[in-house]
Amino acid sequence: MQLLRRRGYRSAAALAVLVLLGATALWLNPSGAPPGTASSSSERKRAHRALHQGPRPAIVPRRAWHAESVDTAPGARYAPSVKAAVIHHTSTPNGYDCATVPRTLRDLYAGHAYGRHWDDLGYNFLVDACGTIYEGRAGGVDRPVIGAHTKGFNEGTVGIAAIGTFTPGESVPEPMLDAIARLVAWKLGPRGPDPRGSVTLVSTHDEARYPKGTKAVLPVVGGHTDGYPTRCPGAALYAKLPDIGARAARIQRR
Rank of each mutant, 00 (worst) to 15 (best):
T37N: 04
A185L: 12
G197W: 02
G152S: 11
L15M: 15
V220F: 06
L126I: 09
S31D: 06
G197P: 01
R143H: 10
V101N: 03
W118I: 01
G8R: 12
S171T: 15
E68H: 13
T157Q: 05
V158Q: 04
A14Y: 09
T214C: 08
I146M: 05
A12C: 03
Y238E: 14
S41I: 12
T92H: 07
G32E: 11
V172L: 07
H205F: 02
A33T: 08
I180C: 11
C130G: 14
G152Y: 07
I146F: 02
P195S: 06
H48A: 14
A129K: 09
G164K: 10
K83L: 12
H224R: 11
K240Q: 15
S11F: 09
I244G: 04
F166W: 12
T167N: 11
D243P: 00
C232A: 13
A23Q: 07
V70T: 09
I146V: 15
V217A: 08
D194N: 15
G22I: 03
S39V: 01
S31A: 15
L15W: 14
R247Y: 00
E207Q: 14
L241Q: 02
A13P: 00
L51S: 10
L51F: 06
P195I: 04
K212P: 03
R10E: 09
P34C: 00
